[in-house]
Design a protein around this nucleic acid. Structure first.
Lengths: 215, 215
DNA sequence: TAGATTGTTAATCGATTAACAATC
DNA sequence: TAGATTGTTAATCGATTAACAATC
């Protein structure tokens, strides 16, 4: 499957993070009508060196062409494959507050293959109400919901105090990954993947930068 | 100001990211009633080695005590200082769609010092409507809004196509930092800081992990 | 062909871990 | 005191950059 039996086996996390940016960039190049993109172009747009870009792309089962660069449609294809952006992922949002409801309604996710199949909450007054064409379910039904809807990913959008318990419930219900939006460091059993995406943490990285004048 | 003239001068980004997690952890220790926390405790909770924790904390103007560890209240204080979590930051949200409105309504931000002072949008039908006690302003008024409300930070919650233009407007209006939630790689002039916090990118990191079985 | 750009190797740089004396 | 835990130095590991032959 891979060029020489190596490549995508295990791509470092730092590289994976940049691959998501290359995908974004490649997609906007396609929209702009380009057919080719060079490592120097990508580097310039993302504030990297062309050397880093070439090293990163060497993890993919794919080659550029001397003098021309990388064919954007092919690059898009392999990036999507390696990141899983060519698949549909059944997703459940836990927490029907402002943030959870906004995510459920956020069209960009569905368009990118993250299909929201369920919304759950612990507040019985919310259960049964409709949100984004889905009836809100009670969090205690998470086992049934995950099974019936074949949920792959849980998005945690509950208050910090509740996050660990929700993570436990989702993990034992069998989801494969969690996106944690709550301000808590959750721990999960082996075999469950977690990515943190906390607004407050990102904002603190930003204020640190502002104060110490990176940029 | 610093212990030996050194420390906080320039903390690597990788360390800053962990500092935000230590702060979260320390705050939950305080809530739980602890007075002391050791590097081994922090390491355990966050999946690090105690060595990394001690190295990271050595960037702070602060020392632990042999045998006891770190005093949580003091550690919280220095972490807040270095990250800017002890200040209030005037923040404007651009984009009054589902995501932008949810952020404006999200109490957690204000509680953490990120006070939403304005919401802006390009859709004239939305301008003038109230959201979270704020009247939605037109994006073309961003210069005036940033000046009058002394906005430090802009949160970009607009569709990808509009993100770069909004970033340009915010930058020339004089904000010091941008939190980019849109699926675009924005570029900004020297002196403006950007942190990306894209749901879709985080989800792709997650699906990559799921497929390649890290965890 | 000559020139541009890749893929890859080697060199550098930075981050993490190990180890241990200092110390409370 | 003896034991636990820090702060820091040195060693290792990994990621980024530089350099350049291969090549289209």
């Amino acid at each position: 499957m891979n060029k020489k039996g190596r490549s995508s086996g295990s791509i470092p996390q730092s590289v994976v993070r940049r691959l998501t940016k290359y995908l974004t960039q490649v997609q906007s190049s396609i929209t702009a009508g380009s057919e080719w993109i060079s490592s120097a172009d990508l580097a310039e747009e993302l504030g990297l060196t062309s050397s880093t870009v070439r090293q990163d792309l060497s993890h993919l089962d794919f080659s550029g062409i001397s003098k021309k660069g990388y064919e954007v449609s092919k690059l898009q294809k392999v990036l999507k494959e390696v990141l899983g952006a060519d698949k549909e992922w059944n997703t459940a949002v836990v927490g029907a507050g402002n943030l959870g409801r906004a995510i459920a309604l956020h069209g960009a996710l569905a368009r990118r293959g993250f299909v929201i199949k369920a919304i759950l909450d612990s507040d019985k007054r919310k259960v049964g109400k409709s949100e984004a064409h889905l009836k809100i379910r009670h969090i205690d039904d998470v086992g049934e919901v995950v099974k019936k809807q074949r949920i792959d990913i849980g998005i945690i959008a509950v208050p910090a105090e509740a996050a660990q318990a929700v993570a436990d419930q989702l993990a034992s219900a069998g989801v494969k990954g969690l996106l944690n939006l709550s301000l808590t460091n959750i721990t999960v059993p082996e075999g469950v993947n977690v990515i943190d995406a906390r607004l407050v943490s990102s904002l603190l990285e930003l204020t640190h930068s502002i104060m110490h004048d990176r940029a």
